[in-house]
């Protein structure tokens, strides 16, 4: 019993850890500005370097107690404080941290700064300070007023190709606390509207998928039923053979089956014997738990029946 309980505890702990880790792993560094000379200001009206974090999951993500750092040798440089309701990032949303070295200004002001003209390493570590969640090296070539951003929000892992330098011109807009890719329409719907005006493509593709799914299921159960039939036939043969052997063994020195059947029929005729089972009545006591809610005393009248 103790062993089972222990196993259950281990499984539950593993599941909880896995789920928790999975959630935190969805946190991404999404956009960084090292020299902020014209971009967004903080609550105190001042401009500082900033780091945008993005919750790439489809559920709210609580980030208190994760660590932000710019030092490869110190994973636990800035712990995101506990007890601030704003540290829960809604699904697919962002939060901005200021790299101003002034943590006494509030939760979102980190205790380190970013250095212009140098490669800036930024990383997020989970609450244990060991599990790396995300990291990025912001290139030294980043000019004042430029940001280093993911091409698509939260996507591309630590791959440098997933990032680009943005200077605010054309489509390279700088988007602190906002999506890097601004969608005004649903791309898929637009594509279907353009490419498949009459819906024929959708009908062919979708019917293909529906048929494939049900055909696969159908084939699978055809095979399973064949296997089942084979197994039950084998079992039946085995049982019948075993039974016949048994009967044969037990009747080796006795009368034949025909003789026994004749004797039984004669006895039946003579004694007029019947099976008594059909005359036995079994009455089960029916118990109903009393509750004032189901008592008819409290009903005004019975439910009408049509």
């Amino acid at each position: 019993m103790k062993k089972k309980l222990f196993l259950l505890l281990v499984v539950v702990t593993a599941c909880v850890t896995a789920v928790s880790a999975q959630g935190r792993r969805g946190l991404r560094i999404n956009e960084v500005m090292v020299v902020n000379d014209s971009s967004v200001v903080d609550d105190f009206g001042q401009r500082h370097a900033w780091v945008e974090l993005y919750n790439s999951t489809f559920a709210p993500l609580e980030i208190s107690s994760v660590f932000l750092t710019n030092d490869k040798d110190n994973n636990k440089k800035y712990p995101v404080p506990l007890g601030d309701v704003n540290t829960e990032i809604p699904a697919r949303q962002h939060v901005l941290f200021w790299a101003d070295g002034q943590p006494n200004k509030g939760t979102f002001h980190m205790n380190f700064t970013l250095t212009p003209g140098e490669d800036n390493y930024i990383a997020i570590y989970d609450a244990n300070g060991l599990s790396l969640i995300d990291e990025v090296v912001v290139p030294a070539s980043l000019k004042p007023g430029q940001s280093y951003a993911r091409k698509v929000d939260g996507e591309g892992g630590t791959d440098a190709d997933a990032w680009e330098v943005r200077d605010g011109s054309g489509q390279y807009y700088i988007t602190p606390s906002s999506n890097n890719v601004i969608k005004d329409t649903n791309g898929k719907v637009e594509m279907f509207a353009e490419q498949d005006e009459n819906g024929f493509g959708m009908a062919v593709m979708a019917m293909g998928v529906v048929f494939t799914a049900l055909l696969l299921l159908s084939l699978c159960f055809y095979i399973i039923s064949k296997i089942g039939e084979g197994v039950s036939r084998k079992n039946k043969v085995k049982t019948v053979t075993a039974h016949l052997d048994e009967v044969h063994d037990s009747h080796k020195d006795h009368d034949s089956g025909e003789a026994i059947a004749a004797i039984v029929m004669a006895l039946h005729e003579h004694l007029d014997a019947h099976d008594r089972e059909s005359t036995v009545l079994t009455i089960n006591k029916v118990r109903r738990a009393y509750s004032p809610w189901n008592s008819k005393i409290y009903s005004l009248r019975e439910l009408p029946r049509r």
Binding site: M202, C220, F221
Partner: peptide
């Protein structure tokens, strides 16, 4: 018992995609 009947269930879904085309 008769898995091939599943295909009838698939064929009837053409109602959905026929209506999709008309809705467009």
């Amino acid at each position: 018992a008769n898995p091939k009947l599943m295909l009838i269930g698939a064929a009837a879904q053409f109602g959905i995609f026929g209506a999709y085309m008309v809705a467009l």
